[in-house]
Design a protein around this nucleic acid. Structure first.
Lengths: 204, 204
DNA sequence: AATACAACCGGGGTAAAGTCCGCTTATGCT
DNA sequence: AGCATAAGCGGACTTTACCCCGGTTGTATT
């Protein structure tokens, strides 16, 4: 006899209590984040406030950075939705170049809005793929670049470099004060700079 | 009466013993790095092996990342020399675009060769200007971009984005295995990709 | 419903980064 | 040379990320 089909939706997945705890930890982390900022969020503090053991926190998220990656991942789901199936020019339907420009603008906005979490999600001991989020960014850029037939470029390398041009300023170079003092202005300049960059890169 | 002019050359600089200790710590750090790799280099271990107190290590370098920044800075001095006053096309004398291409190639090579230190020099809690090295990279790129009169681009933003495109792959995205398995190949692809990128960006 | 098993939980334990402050020593002036 | 001062030094102390493993609880099977 075959297995019932329903429970395979989460194939041998988390146990119910584990899910409950994970969600509770994420919610608690968000509270603490809002109240005290990312750098005051300690694993002990989170565990205590959530009423759980420290071991639980680590098994769920692996590391401190893992918590922020999970939070970021969560926030990014809606964003991904808009990219994969929302209205153009961000979603499918527009010309590749337009989509690429729109994607950059949207991602810059997202990163500026989530810069604290995004920074905290960096591991340092680990290359970025730590979260399942950047792969998507790269895959998407790569796909769009592929759709417009650029000359004999090394598409993989160009993709990484453009991804870095998009994320790097926020993750690596711009100081907190550069952003907080005029977040939306920086946002606009970066978005516009991205547009200029990819237009230059992609013109025939 | 005026002060004697000589001692102002190093205005109230480091004390002699401090200099001695700093150099000794850097040398010891390099030994440990060569023997055990960056992640096994602990502050306690370094202090003990150097025969100094931990407090000394921290006052000299501020943080663990600070040590690697100092090492990187040291290694980069020769590189900077070549850029600022070496022979073209890396040094002055060649056309800006050629210099930019040469600079990217050289920096990629440098970063690939020093990737372990460079990664370890990242702080995570701090934007990159932590070391005086990236500012120079940025300034140089910015200067070269300025020399070729690009259209009405936002030069500052373009500079950060290109700097990120250059450093990001090494600092952020490429995993250790991506590089160690074929370091020179990755090196060449990145350098060539950089050339392609800036040629696209800078053509009229 | 009872059972077996795997996953999960808790919280004490370890290691390493970073801080502090009283003591020591180099430096510049007289 | 002797002194005043500021810089430097050391190492104990605190904090925090991360590990471990015995006991517990959810889940699938009969």
């Amino acid at each position: 006899m075959d297995q019932p089909v329903l429970p395979l939706g989460a194939p041998r997945g988390e146990r119910a209590d584990a899910v409950r705890n994970r969600l509770h930890l994420l919610a608690t982390a968000r509270e603490m984040l809002a109240e005290q900022g990312a750098d005051r969020l300690t694993m002990d503090g989170l565990a205590e406030r959530a009423g759980l053991g420290k071991g639980t926190v680590f098994r769920r998220f692996g590391s401190r950075a893992g918590i922020f990656q999970a939070l970021l991942d969560d926030d990014e789901r809606a964003f991904q939705e808009r990219v994969l199936s929302g209205p153009p020019p961000l979603g499918p339907g527009a010309a590749p170049l337009e989509r690429l420009i729109a994607y950059g603008r949207a991602r810059v906005g997202f990163l500026v809005a989530h810069r604290e979490i995004a920074r905290a999600a960096l591991d340092g001991t680990q290359p970025v793929p730590a979260g399942p989020e950047t792969p998507l960014s790269r895959m998407h850029i790569r796909m769009l670049l592929g759709q417009m037939g650029l000359g004999a470029a090394d598409l993989d390398v160009l993709t990484v470099q453009l991804t870095a041009a998009l994320d790097g300023p926020l993750l690596l170079y711009l100081s907190a004060s550069d952003l907080t003092q005029a977040a939306d202005q920086a946002d606009e300049r970066l978005a516009h700079g991205w547009q200029d960059l990819v237009q230059r890169v992609c013109r025939p």
